[in-house]
């Protein structure tokens, strides 16, 4: 700072840097005097009011979070052929739209590009497609009606998709995995057992492994799905099945099958053999912990 400073100079020297001399006369931001009315300062007046709206939203949001824990199903199993795939709700309309004859199969390109890609690209480029000066929606009939038709379509497709999912669940007698998991966890806790962690349950030991019923099961190919040691593979484990089903229920399941996976065995096995297997399986109980 050896030299003398000129008070009218735009640049002042501070050490070895140059910092522009501040002129506070023109930092006032543009106001909204163009819009007549009661405008107010963003900070703090308006931001405080906005924060109040934010707090109301936050409270409602936290009530939802506490009332409805985030769902979690069973660990991903690529061999699970009976699982009904479902995307998150905001993708349902796309998922449903690509199921119709002219949007799927040979026409999938039409569905993906024409009916999904094109509307999104037109939405992206809306300002360049709707170039008129008019802003009010009722004076822009083409843009507004296209948007309203799209909204109706999206709502309808989402609803159809969800409805069909509920129908599929009902027809296949399936409980969504995250609900089943929750129910099982609650049951276990009620019994005083530790909460089961899916896929990490202790597999119960086999009871009376030298019982002739096991030989019968091997011959009847039960082990193809339920595992060579009944530990479970594509089908569920049968060790400890006596805790879940009693003998009559086991007979009914073997005779008539269950769901998509379990075939009926009434034609391949005699009633005595089914009875033999069911009797043995009903003794398969995990030791009480």
């Amino acid at each position: 700072m050896a030299h003398k400073q000129d008070p009218n100079e735009k640049v002042v020297f501070i050490g070895d840097s140059r910092v522009r001399k501040r002129d506070y006369s023109n930092v006032a931001p543009p106001d909204y005097s163009a819009y007549p009315g009661k405008s107010e300062a963003f900070i703090p007046n308006f931001l405080l009011k906005e924060w109040m709206v934010g707090v109301v939203v936050l409270v409602g949001f936290l009530v939802l979070v506490i009332a409805e824990p985030a769902p979690l199903g069973y660990p991903a199993n690529p061999l699970n052929s009976s699982f009904i795939p479902m995307p998150d709700w905001y993708f349902l309309f796309l998922y449903q739209m690509l199921k119709y004859p002219y949007t799927s199969g040979d026409y999938l390109v039409l569905g993906v590009l024409g009916l999904s890609g094109l509307p999104f690209i037109s939405l992206l480029l809306a300002p360049f497609l709707d170039t008129g000066k008019e802003r009010r929606f009722y004076r822009r009939p083409i843009a507004s009606s296209l948007m309203i038709v799209s909204l109706v379509a999206v709502t309808y497709l989402t609803w159809v998709s969800w409805d069909h999912y509920q129908y599929e669940l009902e027809v296949n007698g399936v409980t969504p995995e995250h609900i089943e998991r929750k129910i099982k966890a609650e049951e276990a806790v009620k019994k005083g057992l530790p909460r089961p962690i899916p896929g990490r349950e202790k597999i119960a030991a086999m009871v009376n492994a030298d019982d002739p019923a096991f030989e019968t099961m091997k011959q009847a190919q039960c082990i193809a799905c339920h595992g060579a040691e009944l530990e479970g593979a594509n089908g569920p484990t049968l060790r400890g099945v006596g805790d879940i089903l009693n003998k009559d229920e086991l007979v009914a399941t073997i005779t008539n099958g269950k769901g998509d996976g379990m075939p009926p065995f009434k034609d391949t096995l005699s009633a005595e053999k089914i009875d033999q297997i069911a009797t043995w399986l009903s003794t398969q109980k995990a030791e009480a912990k």
Binding site: R22, Y24, V27, A28, P29, P30, D31, Y32, Y35, G37, K38, S39, E40, A41, F42, I43, N45, F46, K49, V53
Partner: peptide, 18 residues
């Protein structure tokens, strides 16, 4: 200061104020 002024001091017009 100019940055802060720009964020803090702008007006919110009536037609967007509930």
């Amino acid at each position: 200061t100019p940055m802060w002024r720009d964020i803090a001091d702008h007006e919110v017009p009536e037609h967007v104020n509930p």
